[in-house]
Computed example of a mutant assay.
Amino acid sequence: MTYSGAVKIDGPADVHELTDLMISKVAVGPMNNNAYLLRCRATGQQLLIDAANDAATLLTLIGDDGIASVVTTHRHGDHWQALAEVVAATGAVTYAGRYDAEGIPVPTEVLVEDGDTIRVGRIELTARHLVGHTPGSIALVYDDPHGHPHLFTGDCLFPGGVGNTHQDPAAFASLIDDVETKLFDRLPDETWVYPGHGDDTTLGAERPQLPAWRERGW
């Protein structure tokens, strides 16, 4: 089946099958958060991005193979409600951005800086620190050697705009600057974007809107 990235709470996962990596996307309530399970096809090792909520759904998705690690994209509570339960069940190593870790009640074992590499099996993800939605939000880039990049943006980039900066002009300027220089300027239009809520997009679909986003200020 063709991957669409359109998932619903209590619905099945949508699976994006790449040559070296499988990406399974689920939505969990009550805030329609996305969680992503990454599985290295060569080793079977798995990593979870955002244990947002509904630990039972996430643990079913993870299955008997467990996870080696879980990455929390940022400190907001809707992205870590199931983290304690998932870590207790799997023993996964916890990762989060250095400047958001203090706001996550489950201890962060690996503090992530801009440009750091996070590995799952033979797969390498590059972290990008994006300031504005929170002080320490991170996005993760998988530069697929067999195709285009894949980008997990948390709540920093969605179809139609950057993340909420609560009408703070300085925070908005910081976020859109980081998103433009660290994501749009470095990655091609074909880059597939997996956000923290809602449907997927591509950088190419969003790139023409950047001037309008700056003008409107959100």
Rank of each mutant, 00 (worst) to 15 (best):
D54T: 07
A55Q: 01
A55G: 01
A55S: 11
A55F: 00
A55C: 03
T57F: 05
T57V: 04
L58I: 01
L58D: 00
L59D: 12
T60C: 11
T60A: 11
T60F: 05
T60V: 06
T60M: 14
L61I: 10
L61S: 07
L61E: 04
L61F: 06
I62D: 03
I62C: 11
I62R: 06
G63P: 08
G63E: 13
G63A: 11
G63F: 08
D64G: 06
D65C: 15
D65N: 15
D65Q: 14
G66S: 13
A68Q: 11
A68R: 03
A68L: 10
A68W: 14
A68E: 15
S69C: 11
S69N: 07
S69P: 07
S69K: 12
S69H: 08
V70N: 06
V70F: 03
V71I: 13
T72C: 13
T72N: 12
T73I: 09
T73V: 11
T73Q: 11
T73R: 09
T73P: 03
T73N: 10
H74W: 09
H74G: 06
H76S: 12
H76W: 06
G77F: 06
G77W: 08
D78K: 11
H79L: 04
H79G: 07
H79P: 07
H79C: 04
Q81N: 13
Q81D: 15
Q81A: 12
A82G: 02
L83Q: 01
L83E: 01
A84C: 03
A84R: 15
E85Y: 00
E85C: 00
V86Q: 00
V87W: 00
V87G: 00
V87I: 13
A89V: 02
A89G: 02
A89Y: 02
T90S: 04
T90F: 02
G91F: 15
G91V: 07
V93E: 15
T94M: 06
T94H: 09
Y95Q: 08
Y95C: 06
A96I: 02
A96H: 05
A96T: 04
G97V: 03
G97R: 09
G97C: 11
G97L: 03
G97D: 09
R98V: 11
Y99C: 03
Y99N: 13
Y99L: 13
Y99F: 12
D100F: 01
D100R: 13
D100Y: 01
A101Q: 05
A101F: 05
E102K: 15
E102W: 07
E102S: 09
E102L: 11
G103D: 15
G103S: 10
G103T: 11
I104R: 01
I104G: 00
V106C: 03
V106G: 01
V106D: 01
P107I: 14
P107C: 04
P107E: 05
P107R: 14
P107V: 12
P107K: 12
P107F: 14
T108S: 13
E109R: 14
V110A: 02
V110C: 08
V110K: 07
L111W: 12
L111D: 12
L111Y: 10
V112A: 03
V112K: 03
V112F: 03
V112Q: 08
E113L: 09
E113R: 10
E113V: 13
E113D: 10
D114V: 01
